[in-house]
């Protein structure tokens, strides 16, 4: 890549402030660095990935409202986690976390376990039990 070809495409507002370093060749064929404000192929990939996450959150929310899953799954998606990551934060096995998605199990969870989840998501137990709490 030539230094003059280092892309300066617009990214979304937040990431746009962040310029990253690229390596490119100057007129004399010498390697140098240049700052790039963004490149469309990656902006689209990032936007799609975020859209994908938002779809997952929306989907989880609807399933919570339809009593098909527990709010834990919704908050997990909201925090961009998957079952493996959440399990390692609460210090449980994946299958245990998955079981807590079941409403029957969730309703029987101890205060202590609920508090564990609530602290990870940085919310109160009330918010953990009811995703619309306070709204």
């Amino acid at each position: 890549m030539k230094k003059s070809d280092v892309p300066q495409d617009k990214s979304s507002l937040e990431t746009g402030k962040h310029k990253e370093l690229c390596y490119a060749v100057d007129e004399n064929g010498e390697y140098t660095t240049a700052k790039s404000s963004g490149w469309q192929p990656k902006t689209i990939a990032l936007d799609n990935a975020i859209q994908e996450i938002n779809d997952r959150i929306e989907n989880a929310k609807n399933r919570v409202l339809n009593n098909e899953t527990s709010p834990i799954e919704y908050y997990m998606e909201l925090h961009k986690m998957d079952v493996g990551i959440l399990a390692s934060y609460v210090g449980l096995f994946k299958w245990q976390v998955k079981r807590h998605f079941k409403l029957k199990r969730f309703n029987k969870l101890s205060e202590k376990t609920l508090q564990k989840y609530a602290s990870i998501f940085e919310i109160s137990i009330n918010q953990l039990k009811d995703i619309d709490y306070g709204n």
Partner: peptide
């Protein structure tokens, strides 16, 4: 994203 985003220098 793996190729371009996480600070690969391009």
């Amino acid at each position: 994203r793996m190729q371009e985003e996480i600070g690969t220098g391009g």
